[in-house]
Design a binder for these strands. Structure first.
Lengths: 348, 348
DNA sequence: GTTTAGCACTCTATCTCTCTGAGTGCTAAA
DNA sequence: TTTAGCACTCAGAGAGATAGAGTGCTAAAC
């Protein structure tokens, strides 16, 4: 049985009201707040049917209705209208991202912070997935004898560095040369194809320094770990504490379950990855309540979207909020931030 | 009126019991759990006096007593015995910090993580206060035309980098030369004495590249911002979510107040700084309940201590937990972690 | 067939009342 | 100074009672 027009309106109104007040919506209240041209009894019939079809739930017999996960799903899929961000709000976000960012990490940090402030929920920003990106530069900088800073620059604009230890007696020149050799041999190679072996052959094919093999291998191993480490995703998450002010998390147990999960960056990042793959074609990904396979997030909704770096490599930003979230607003906010990121990263 | 021996014992027993159970302690329960050789009536008299002197409080007339801030203070100042860490626990911490850390940031991250795991409370680790440290190296690395990575190395072992934008047409050599000139002119200079002017004079006194003044100034300005940015304290904080399982934070409002404050790294860092100055001579700093001037932390206690880098520059690590904290255990844990850090950073 | 008025019914939240028990403070004796 | 004894206090738990929001159903109206 499909939803007739009035039922759609009723569902939409109930979601809207519940989002606003976090209180079960009754037929009377619905009539009061909206211009239905029918009586409350009619709405009651509609609501009973909507419940039977699984779109609504009752906390108990004599309460109003609240949307089920399926109800929210219908709402975001076909009922809500995503309105454009108000000029004012767009301006606010723009301002927060207006500082010049020449490193992707700072941009993402700012984006996550803006998103958290603007939505009032938990924001998320992840560095680009690097497996598909490639090495553009590798510099080895001697900080003091025996200590070398390996700077790895990736095509996605990601810069990472790692301090490594090498034998004391190597000179800055020798180390820099090895770095150059590796860089020449590997630049342009996708990260996924870089292994200890490729590093070694690259270096040995290009370098001019005469060094015993064992020694050279030691340095190369450190360079390799530095490159591999650059592969790690960074996750920026902000605004967690705001969830505590929501009525759905007034129960500490629930909040704890949520925070426990969120404290594992890796879990969240992995989940975002998975969802992104599932909804590859879509502009944004939404997961509602039980649809989320992360523990402790069954009272939440999760919205993510993908930004692009130079049209190729992509990372994610997103928002985690209560199921009772202002979906259309959050979506437009996320979209706006994504556009801003895309724009800033388009310049080569 | 000073505390006689039995009163001290009573206070100590009450703190111990309350720490263990988070329930007001009555005279009867006290007799049951401890070997006082007197009757409950005698203890009642003692407890009444302790209350009058401000060491104990009553939640209401017919409940047991709980320690007041003053009571906790007396406890940590003269009653508790700081026991040595168990070998087992020492081993666990050692293990967590056993990876080789050649960058101070990673070491602190690991330390904070170990401290949070081990205490079950909120841990804190801050990079060294850098004002007293000095610049040892400054490298400028061209990533692509117009984009330069400025790597700043400070005496405290802190390495920071910042991507900056410069005019497109400058070459790697030119940029590197400017970097060298700045480094030569400034190395050894305390950060506090580095200003845009000192940077400029340093560079102009040492550099050989012929560049129009305006252009040079632009590059120098970027180098200067990079140096100044290296000055920022980094704060690593972990284990916040654990507080939600404590009965004192079962009220979400309270938890929210705490988290609100803790989400401002700067506030916390500033406070730690202040406290450290006040208790300069002490091995560790303790602030209890209302003694803490940060909003939302009046149900908490704050313990910090100072680690050293090469005997000179110093940073802080610490723990935030409920007033009802296992003080002696936490103190020995913090001390142990500090010793580990000191040791790892002693090697030049 | 759809809509509506009317009404009995259900269930939570709230309030009040009572009871219980842990714990106190005080008094008087040891 | 310590102790036994006892009256007193108060939070918390449990039991009704009540109010009110909301429901579902029936029968009439459109």
């Amino acid at each position: 049985m499909a939803l007739d027009n009035r039922k759609k309106e009723v569902l939409q109104a109930i979601v809207d009201d519940y989002v606003a007040n976090c209180e079960p919506v009754g037929s009377k209240a619905l009539i009061d707040r909206h211009d239905f041209m029918v009586s409350s009894a009619t709405l009651r019939n509609d609501m009973a049917e909507l419940e039977q079809m699984g779109y609504l739930e009752k906390p108990h017999t004599s309460a109003g209705r609240i949307p089920s996960d399926k109800g929210y799903r219908e709402y975001v899929d076909s009922l809500m209208k995503v309105d454009k961000l108000s000029d004012e709000e767009g301006k606010e976000i723009k301002e927060k991202l207006s500082v010049s960012f020449d490193e992707i990490a700072s941009l993402l940090k700012a984006a996550s912070s803006a998103l958290a402030d603007q939505t009032g929920y938990i924001s998320l920003a992840m560095t680009p997935k690097l497996t598909s990106s490639y090495l553009t530069q590798l510099k080895m900088l001697m900080i003091e004898p025996g200590k070398v800073l390996v700077v790895v620059v990736l095509s996605a604009g990601v810069v990472k560095n790692r301090m490594v230890r090498i034998p004391d007696f190597l000179t800055q020149d020798q180390v820099a040369q090895i770095g150059n050799a590796v860089e020449q041999g590997l630049s342009g190679l996708p990260l996924s194809e870089i292994s200890l072996i490729t590093v070694a052959t690259a270096a040995k094919g290009n370098q001019k320094v005469e060094l015993p093999d064992a020694l050279l291998n030691q340095v190369l191993y450190e360079a390799y770990t530095a490159i591999k480490q650059a592969d790690n995703l960074d996750v920026y998450m902000q605004g967690k504490h705001r969830m505590l002010s929501l009525p759905e998390f007034s129960d500490t147990k629930r909040a704890q379950g949520l925070f426990d999960t969120l404290s594992h960056d890796g879990l969240v990042a992995g989940y975002v990855d998975e969802v992104t793959k599932q909804d590859e074609k879509k502009e944004y990904m939404i997961r509602i309540g039980q649809e989320i396979t992360l523990e402790g997030l069954d009272e939440c909704s999760f919205i993510t979207t993908t930004y692009n770096v130079g049209g190729k490599v992509a990372g994610n930003i997103g928002v985690i909020g209560p199921k009772r979230m202002e979906y259309s607003k959050v979506i437009s906010q996320i979209n706006f931030v994504r556009m801003m990121i895309d724009e800033k990263l388009k310049q080569p």
